[in-house]
Design a protein around this nucleic acid. Sequence first.
DNA 1: CTGAAAGCGCTTACAG
DNA 2: CTGAAAGCGCTTACAG
Lengths: 352, 352
Amino acid sequence: MAHTMHDVARRAGVSPATVSRVLSKNPYISAETTNRVLSAVKELHYHRNVHARRLAIGKSDLFGLVISEIANPFFSEIIRGFQSAAWDRGFDVLLLNTEYNPERTQSVVRKLIENDVRGVAVMTSSLDSDVIQTLTREGIAVVLSNLSAPDRLVSNITIDYGRGLSQAIEHIASLGHRRAAVIAGPPSNQTAANIATALVDGLKQRGLDPDPVTHSAYNVEAAAEAVKAIVSTKRTPTVIFCGSDLIAMGVMVALEQAGIDVPSEISVIGIDDIAFSYLVRPPLTTIRVPREDLGVTSFKALNKLLKQKRNRGDEYVIETELVIRKSTAAARTSLLRKKIEALKTGSKLQNL
Amino acid sequence: MAHTMHDVARRAGVSPATVSRVLSKNPYISAETTNRVLSAVKELHYHRNVHARRLAIGKSDLFGLVISEIANPFFSEIIRGFQSAAWDRGFDVLLLNTEYNPERTQSVVRKLIENDVRGVAVMTSSLDSDVIQTLTREGIAVVLSNLSAPDRLVSNITIDYGRGLSQAIEHIASLGHRRAAVIAGPPSNQTAANIATALVDGLKQRGLDPDPVTHSAYNVEAAAEAVKAIVSTKRTPTVIFCGSDLIAMGVMVALEQAGIDVPSEISVIGIDDIAFSYLVRPPLTTIRVPREDLGVTSFKALNKLLKQKRNRGDEYVIETELVIRKSTAAARTSLLRKKIEALKTGSKLQNL
DNA sequence: CTGAAAGCGCTTACAG
DNA sequence: CTGAAAGCGCTTACAG
């Protein structure tokens, strides 16, 4: 069995209270006592039991972070940002993923409450407003990124897609595109719907024809499926705006299979700027969402919320921006020439 | 303040002990009492405090999972497998990441002990054998994947790269390759070193010349750097074996920048088969490591270890296999023709 | 600067 | 089938 504070106390010849004080860095302890206690701790390989500690303190040192799924690289930097911010201030993070599953979502909420987290950043749309109320009723601070209004114990972070979208539309228009398709995220997702609306409005305003406007789940396979309907029409678009980078990647795969070249025949634009977006070919032009910043801001928002007496929520805004990526012309030309050569001479392009 | 079991008891007109029994699904409770308690729980929105519960039980319901970094997609499926296996059995997972940082690594170990986890799966090489001993001394079961021998409270999962490597070498040899470079993972990593050795031996045995044999950290940037030295020599290889898919992707980027075509001039082979490996172009041929299986097996191994009286560790083996990927010839040819056409006519390949 | 004691919110033999 | 009581391992006023 692991040792307890009592064991350490006996060994150091002090009371458990003193051991607790030393370990909590209470300043009113003599240097000598501190040393004796620390030696005993070391000798016994003593570690405090965090469950007992949390129970005694009456508050947990935990903050929750709710995401959809760990496998989605979109969340990676959010996690990193949130974690660092929390650790820097001596808090722990309880990372919970809903996997888009209602049952799991329920158990996520239960865990948040059972663990007595101080606050939670909800970075998925799987939690509806009922659930949010359940949390705030327990005194848990909540920060969301779904455009709901700030409230008691609830702050909101708005990701301002407007700027990035305008830049993207301007970019596309200036390249001479006329017909733009839109594959937004799932319609049940409020953010996705807002982005779709903003895109359609923006495109029209710039004299572009948004057609068709459709949607897809946030994954490669669904997107590949969604794009089929688009390319099978007679009047194909010259650019496809996608609701996320994963959707864009699915689109690129499907276009390739259909024998349609990106970007010479159809350009593709994503949203998020996930880490892999510069590794696909052609590299993905996308609207960057500063996700590490989003994570950090989320934590700070929670902290602020809890420090105020009235727990009044705030509104935060995070900006987006277009990231234009192209293959180096030189490199691509040189590669093409080689491939042309290879095709001509019929030389062994074994893996072609 | 949140309600306690006492509040529920009073409201239901029973003792706290009874509430506890109802909530723990103790069978010897009358249906009527159960209902009264459950109603009170519902009315008060009562949730058990997990810290008090864990303290009273004397054992936590936690299992630890230690990885290097969440952003690395290599770990995604491991997490998923481990989590599902744990949840299915009513346990919770404490996910800890070292970020390759010694300080963080120390605090990871501390957290494992403080949280009184029953067992921990260590999926990173950041924890040395000293640390493992620290854990087992506390009675924590450990499962590793680093080729150390099973021991008391320690099981080992060997990923058998042999099969996948043989298949890859055979594949490459049958395509007529003669000169193979190797960019292994970091030399400090035992697994990386073993893979490098196996590769060199296997290549020689098959009459291929492994040269040069070098290494890189497990990320895109480092790999891109590492490959420069290789292509700058006069005698460039026709295939590069990479210690991971991320390394392979870095290599592909760097080769492209150097104007070297993959795979017609140099073929690239990765290891892992991360989710994105089929999205890069050309799609990556790689050695698949069944990582979800690895996660599930890790959990089962811990469970088994804890159930035995003697806590004797076991040895597990996970197989790998080559995944050959090529672009559809038809699609690529058609795309090439279009690009050729575009180049000839000088038409606007704006983003080319 | 330090100790004795109460209390955090649960669980679980023990007794009935 | 149910309750009173002890105990899990800490922390922290309170007192000195």
